[in-house]
Amino acid sequence: MNYKVLDVCRHIINYSNEKGYGISNLKLQKILYFVQAYFLIDKEKQHPCFDEKIEAWDFGPVVPVAYHEYKAYGSGNIPTIKSYILINKNNFWDSKRVEFNDNIIKDEDKKLIDSVVDSFHEYSATDLVSLTHRQTPWINAYKHYENNEITTKAIKEYFDD
């Protein structure tokens, strides 16, 4: 089962804050890329964590949906998410605030996601940008002024060595 990337983001943000790591939008984007990689190469899962695409932007891999959700925080840390606004695309006025339910993500999947966050928490967002800029999934997809997709196939091939 694949999750919605924004649910994965909310879990990562809350876990990062609970552990005292903090997480900016730029760092969140790189963590999502590594979470996707870990899910793709996990011997039991071997499927994406989320279906939304990852693109090669100037500062490394980015999930556009997630980027736009949290861009208002700039380079600052994103606060804990207790609730969020669920937007009704058919009728904006029917949008509502809902509590974030972390049980959407299975415990075994949370463990894998948390292990990725734990592995990279000491790296700055800039460190992670540099790291992803040296990896072929981003290198092969990146073209200046284009937001080309970094495919799950490219991620799996690179990390499965």
Rank of each mutant, 00 (worst) to 15 (best):
G22I: 04
V129M: 13
Y70N: 04
W93D: 08
N147C: 09
Y73V: 00
K4W: 05
G76E: 11
Y38C: 01
Q135L: 05
D94N: 15
E122F: 10
H121W: 14
T151K: 04
F39Y: 00
N77I: 13
Y33F: 05
T136K: 10
L6Q: 08
K111F: 01
C9M: 04
L40E: 00
G22E: 05
I78V: 06
R97W: 08
T152W: 11
V117N: 00
T151A: 09
F120S: 10
V62Q: 07
F159K: 01
T132C: 15
Y3D: 01
C49T: 00
F92G: 02
I155A: 00
D42E: 03
S75A: 06
E69F: 12
W57C: 03
Y15K: 03
F159W: 09
M1T: 10
Q29P: 10
S115R: 09
L32E: 06
G20D: 12
I150V: 01
I85N: 13
F50T: 00
K27Q: 11
N77W: 08
S119V: 03
A37D: 01
D58M: 08
A154S: 14
K19A: 09
I104Y: 14
Y84R: 08
F34A: 10
K153P: 05
V98E: 14
E99Y: 06
N103L: 13
R10V: 02
S16V: 10
W93I: 05
F100I: 06
Y73H: 04
N103S: 12
M1S: 15
Y67W: 13
E55S: 05
S124N: 15
D118P: 02
P79E: 01
L32C: 04
V117Y: 00
H68W: 11
K19Q: 10
K82P: 02
L26Q: 04
D51E: 07
I12G: 01
F159Y: 09
L86A: 15
N91L: 13
I113R: 01
R97K: 08
I12S: 02
I113W: 03
S124K: 10
A37S: 09
S24F: 02
N88Q: 12
H133T: 13
D118F: 01
R134D: 11
P48S: 07
K43R: 04
K110V: 01
D51S: 12
N88P: 07
Q29Y: 08
L40Q: 02
I105E: 02
S115I: 04
N14E: 14
Y142G: 00
N103P: 10
I113C: 03
K45P: 00
Y158E: 02
Y70K: 06
C49G: 03
C49V: 01
S119T: 14
E122C: 14
Y67A: 11
E55A: 07
P79V: 04
A56M: 07
I78H: 09
N90T: 11
K27Y: 05
D94V: 08
